[in-house]
């Protein structure tokens, strides 16, 4: 079943109320052929469960890893993925676009 924003933000709130650490990642800027539009969400819990997407499956792994750090220290951060970035190739944003993702903890 595909998840809508309803499910993603709703699930983030449910996880938090259950006492889990939760982070929310949001696509804040895109350039070129980015697979998911600005405003797309990915919710991540402290166990590494996630719902939603910020790309076509290319960089979610890296975002989840960073999200666990955000859950740890509570400091929001901006991640950038794109063709100009060595690590992006490693992460695999192969569509040729570039995206910026804001990751914040739900407190």
């Amino acid at each position: 079943m595909l998840s809508s924003d309803d499910d993603i933000l709703g699930q983030a709130a449910v996880w938090r109320r259950e006492g889990r650490g939760v982070a929310l990642a949001t696509v804040v800027e895109t350039w070129g052929s980015a697979p998911r539009p600005v405003g797309s969400h990915l919710a991540i819990d402290s166990e590494g469960h996630f719902l939603g997407s910020v790309s076509g499956g290319c960089v979610e792994g890296d975002v989840v890893t960073e999200a666990l750090d955000v859950i740890g220290d509570g400091k929001p951060r901006v991640l950038e993925f794109g063709v100009a970035d060595e690590t992006a190739w490693r992460a695999g944003l192969s569509c040729g676009g570039r995206i910026r993702v804001y990751v914040e903890r739900i407190d």
Binding site: G10, A12, A13, R16, I106, D107
Partner: peptide, 10 residues
């Protein structure tokens, strides 16, 4: 984001 803001959004 504070949980109360997320709740308001939902």
């Amino acid at each position: 984001m504070r949980l109360d803001l997320l709740t308001k959004l939902n």
